[in-house]
């Protein structure tokens, strides 16, 4: 049980509410991505967000009201001290790296491992390569990201730019659709093993100078 004081919650009718956590190394633009998604604003210099646990945006998909609650790391990724409870009740995770900094991409397996350790078993994971507006400084090939996504069975890889509003909404809409599909399957978890929808096919999308949308691994 949770001690929500949400008498308000009962009043509004949402068909789905999903908790999505955002992780990845420091300064890869996580907060910019969320901020852009929830408010459509990009700020060049990002102050540490004080006092904000998560941000919310409502989407309408296939006539259903979907509420996306996006949680930020509160800076605890900096010294790798994210609390376990951050992962606990998440339905999905978005791992972000900065495609101009190789090291942030190399940390991705670490973050996947953390999710496996503390998250729910069927958590949906998506990978985003941020700052694709700076493609001329690119240090991570989209192909490498695809290979990694395939290796770990991630849902998708998208290259994004909070600055140029590229692929931000797409990330969350794709995530919302996948979560809706998984959470509306009848008798989920009851049927024989084969019916578990763990094998949803990855959709890999890259925008930018080289047209590379819908690369299916």
């Amino acid at each position: 049980m949770q001690f929500s004081s949400s008498a308000r919650a009962a009043e509004e009718n949402f068909d789905y509410l999903f908790k999505i956590i955002l992780i990845g190394d420091s300064n890869v633009g996580k907060t910019c991505v969320v901020r852009h998604f929830t408010s459509g604003v990009y700020a060049e210099t990002q102050q540490n967000t004080i006092g904000v646990d998560f941000t919310v945006r409502a989407l309408e998909i296939n006539g259903k009201k979907v509420k996306m609650q996006v949680w930020d790391t509160a800076g605890q990724e900096r010294f790798r001290t994210i609390t376990q409870s951050y992962y606990r009740s998440a339905h999905a995770a978005i791992i972000a790296y900065d495609l101009t900094r190789r090291s942030t991409f190399e940390s991705v397996p670490h973050w996947i491992h953390e999710i496996e350790k503390y998250g729910a078993a069927n958590l949906v994971i998506m990978l985003i390569g941020n700052k694709c507006d700076m493609w001329e400084k690119r240090h991570v090939l989209f192909e490498d990201a695809c290979t990694l996504a395939e290796k770990y069975g991630l849902l998708a890889v998208l290259e994004t730019s909070a600055k140029e509003s590229k692929n931000i909404d797409e990330v969350f809409v794709l995530m919302a659709r996948e979560l809706m599909a998984r959470h509306s399957l009848p008798l989920y978890g009851e049927g024989p093993l084969g019916s578990l929808p763990l094998d949803s096919s990855p959709v890999l999308t890259a925008p930018g100078p080289r047209e590379k949308s819908q690369c299916t691994c």
Partner: peptide, 18 residues
């Protein structure tokens, strides 16, 4: 969006954990 933060609403039970 005047909605409380905490109640997770899931249309269908997913698995033992969910």
């Amino acid at each position: 969006e005047p909605l409380g933060a905490n109640t997770i609403i899931i249309a269908q039970p997913e698995s033992s954990e969910g």
